[in-house]
Nucleic acid binder design. Structure first.
Length: 409
RNA sequence: GGAGAGGUUCCCGAGUGGUUAAAGGGAGCAGACUGUAAAUCUGCCGGCUCAGCCUUCGGAGGUUCGAAUCCUCCCCUCUCCA
């Protein structure tokens, strides 16, 4: 089998490695690796997809991934990449989140028969005694060196408190602990984790005289320099309850041209030959690549059935022979009684979730961005009543691409 | 603990008694152009029962016809000193 490290390099997963040659050698044999995940929400969002995909590749290559839920470290708050302290979470909330994160992860990797493991670092971190920890672990850390780490240097400007300063030690301890108990020899993570990963490598060498390794992923920003995974509605979640498969598909198909090649490699499992072919498409042919990206990504996250539906809806709504009959787009049900007297358009837009406030809906329509069954709505308070429904539903559109179908219930 | 600086609308950041729902930038939204792309141009960008009204400038009081702007107390952050 091909060395997963080559796959990582070829697909653009690698930002830094502690030792390229040794890591490659390590990955020739089945290896245990780990990535830490924040339990701050009950769902992953697109920002976590890159690490998740890396675990997928690891497992496919016969390695054993460990997903570490940062229940213990979550109680502390990682200062890396943050300008402010993170809210501290309760134990109950973290456990609850961990449970649903595992479920979500199961879509991507197989946890059966310990082919992958999920652990919560609260299990060992919360048991630590302060004095013992200082004496056994703390003495291996040079404050001078810690301060020179990028993640702390930034925070030195804005302020860093002691609890956050300790985060590095805890994550280093995690790595050592996983090495000790699971023979885990590779930690991966976003590039903002580089310092923390190195700390674990160092600690383990000092404590055990053993070499373990680290690899970081590039921090993904879109080509416009913005952090990935945000839309006007907020984060793009992997949970279909929070972000429907249709919206998820739309998120991917709307990516900027220059990002497509990179994303095909990172977020799909298409063979690189296909990726290269799709990436070579120019101008409006890029749409084919975008559609493929959206389809494959939705498939991985929500399954083929949902991906088919999302693609069908997209083709209907945006294709050359536009139709308005699609069923898999977001929909909103409205009572018959509400319609009998008619409803001002802007109120319906708000109710259907296309606008956050009525004021926003007024503005949208006044500016010509409100459509009813694909015809522009002329005035914001235009009355909508049952006559506007065809076969029991009507199609609202905000701007060029946000659709909601409204059904009479 | 002492001395100083500061907390403004999603973010950064101006504003030091009325003309301020608050400059400017970023993000976001819409329109035009397009390929459900980018760039560009234009408009919008606190809420509402929207030509009017209501609520905002760390919190609570106070001065004033009128406060984000002045006073008092409190909370929080940063810098320097211990």
């Amino acid at each position: 089998m091909e060395n997963v490290f080559h796959i990582f390099e070829e697909r653009g997963f690698v930002e830094q490695v502690t030792d390229r040659g040794l890591v490659m050698k390590l990955l020739r044999e089945p290896t245990t690796c780990y990535i830490g995940f924040d339990p701050t929400a009950s769902s992953f969002h697109v920002g976590s997809l890159l690490p998740i995909m890396s675990l997928v590749h690891m497992q496919r290559a016969g390695h054993r991934p460990i997903a570490v839920i940062g229940g213990g470290t979550g109680l502390v708050g990682d200062p890396s990449g943050k300008t402010e302290m993170r809210p501290i979470m309760t134990r109950e909330k973290i456990d609850e989140n961990a449970e649903s994160l595992k479920k979500q992860l199961s879509r991507f990797i197989d946890f059966s028969n310990e082919k992958a493991i999920m652990v919560n670092n609260a299990d060992w971190l919360t048991r630590l005694g302060y004095i013992d920890f200082l004496r056994d672990i703390g003495r291996h850390f040079s404050v001078n060196r810690m301060l020179s780490a990028e993640s702390y240097r930034v925070r030195l400007e804005t302020g860093l408190n002691f609890i956050e300063f300790n985060y590095m030690l805890l994550q280093a301890y995690d790595f050592w602990y996983l090495f000790k108990h699971y023979d885990c020899r590779l930690q991966m993570g976003g590039n903002d984790q580089w310092g923390n990963i190195l700390a674990g490598v160092d600690l383990t060498r000092r404590l055990e005289g053993e070499a373990i390794y680290g690899l970081t992923f590039p921090l993904l920003t879109t080509s416009s320099g913005i952090k990935m995974g945000k839309t006007h509605k907020g984060a793009v979640w992997l949970d279909p309850e929070l972000t429907s498969p249709y919206e998820y598909y739309q998120y991917w198909i709307n990516q900027d041209d220059p990002d497509i090649a990179r994303f095909l490699a990172l977020f799909t499992l298409l063979p690189m030959d296909d990726v290269r072919r799709l990436s070579a498409l120019k101008d409006s042919d890029i749409r084919e690549a975008k559609e493929r990206l959206a389809y494959e990504a939705t498939c991985l996250c929500h399954g083929q059935k949902e991906a088919d539906l999302a693609r069908k809806a997209a083709r209907e709504l945006f294709g050359p022979d536009k139709s308005v009959s699609s069923e898999s787009i977001p929909n909103y049900g409205i009572g018959k009684d509400k319609l009998s007297d008619g409803l001002p358009a802007y109120i319906l837009f708000k109710k259907a979730g296309l606008c956050k406030t009525r004021g926003e809906a007024r503005r949208l329509i006044a500016q010509g961005g409100g459509y009813l069954n694909d015809r522009r709505i002329e005035t914001f308070d235009q009355t909508i009543n049952s006559r506007d429904f065809e076969n029991g539903f009507l199609l609202l559109r905000a701007g060029k691409k946000r659709y909601v179908s409204v059904r009479v219930t």
